[in-house]
Amino acid sequence: MEKKNMLVLFGSPRPHGATARLLQTFLQKIDPEAVRVTTFDAYRGNYHPCTACGYCQTREACVFHDLDEFDRELRAADYLVIAAPVYHMSFPAPCKAVMDRWQRYFEARFAMGIRPPIEKPKTAAFLTVYGSSNPEGAHMMTRQLELAFTVMNTKLEHVVEWPHTDQTGTAEIPPEVMEKAHQAALAMMEKT
């Protein structure tokens, strides 16, 4: 059986923090014999933000080439995982910079009429942590992903939230969050 491809966008400044722990918990249930996982770290990649220059309105490319490899991996992916904490009701700036560069897929669809801009369909999961008990930021982020995915041939099927990290710290993932992460990964693999 041919290996499937999973692309992970990691959007936390803390490589060993709560978001990383949640992602590791999710990935525990991904069979490395069946799935090749490629991770892009938004903080360490230092990716250029979108400047709305219009370059992608007339060609299937971005004027900046720092995310060309991400684009190749995205087009090949069967699964897409976004792992990011809630920052002021949204994604952290480096993660948002990568996502804003997805404008190229909107332009391919609406300016150039390419349907779909990304041929291979994919299933997505969103893993997020937040310090408070208020899920509103996570819900806003989920909605942002759902809207972006409408032109990316991607369906967000799994959302795993880990709240209260300011009060509980990141030492132990609550059992119910761990179970939800494991179940999301297993459900994703059932589509293999």
Rank of each mutant, 00 (worst) to 15 (best):
Y105Q: 01
D78F: 06
E73T: 04
E179H: 10
A148L: 13
L80Q: 02
E60L: 08
W102F: 12
T192A: 15
K3C: 11
F10A: 01
Y43I: 05
E190K: 14
A124L: 02
A61P: 06
N5P: 03
V63S: 13
M89Q: 14
R101G: 00
P175Y: 04
F10T: 00
P15D: 09
Q144F: 09
M99V: 05
I118C: 03
P174R: 12
Y130I: 01
S12I: 05
E136P: 06
I118D: 00
E119C: 09
T128P: 01
S12G: 08
L156F: 05
Y79Q: 10
G169R: 15
N134S: 13
W102K: 01
H16P: 04
K3W: 04
K96P: 01
T58N: 07
A34I: 14
M89L: 15
R59K: 13
A171L: 15
V129Y: 00
T154E: 02
H158G: 05
T192D: 06
A20E: 07
Q24V: 04
H164G: 12
V86R: 07
R115H: 12
A124W: 00
E161W: 02
M152N: 02
E179V: 12
E107A: 12
E157P: 05
A76H: 07
D31L: 10
M152Y: 01
E176I: 13
H48S: 13
P94V: 03
T38A: 08
A138L: 04
Y47G: 00
R104V: 11
K29Y: 08
R44N: 08
C53N: 06
Y87T: 14
Y79V: 12
L186P: 07
E107M: 04
G17M: 07
Y87L: 14
N153L: 00
R115A: 07
E172G: 09
F64K: 08
P13N: 11
K155I: 09
D41F: 09
D41Q: 10
L186H: 09
V177Y: 12
A93F: 08
P13W: 05
Q144Y: 11
V159P: 00
A124E: 01
C53Y: 05
L156R: 02
E107K: 10
A97H: 14
T192Q: 10
G17Q: 13
A83M: 14
P121R: 08
H182M: 14
Y105R: 00
K155S: 13
D31I: 08
T58C: 06
K4T: 12
A125M: 02
M112N: 01
F91E: 12
M6F: 08
A125H: 00
R143H: 14
W162G: 01
A97Y: 02
F126Y: 07
K120A: 03
K29S: 13
V159R: 03
Y87F: 15
M178V: 10
P85H: 11
T168Q: 15
T192V: 13
C53P: 11
R101I: 03
M140T: 12
P175T: 11
K4Q: 15
M140P: 05
G45K: 00
K120D: 08
P49W: 06
M89R: 11
K3F: 10
H164E: 08
P135F: 09
M188W: 03
A20R: 15
W102Q: 01
P49N: 09
C95V: 11
R72H: 12
G113N: 03
F40E: 04
S133Y: 15
T38R: 15
E146M: 14
D66H: 11
R72C: 09
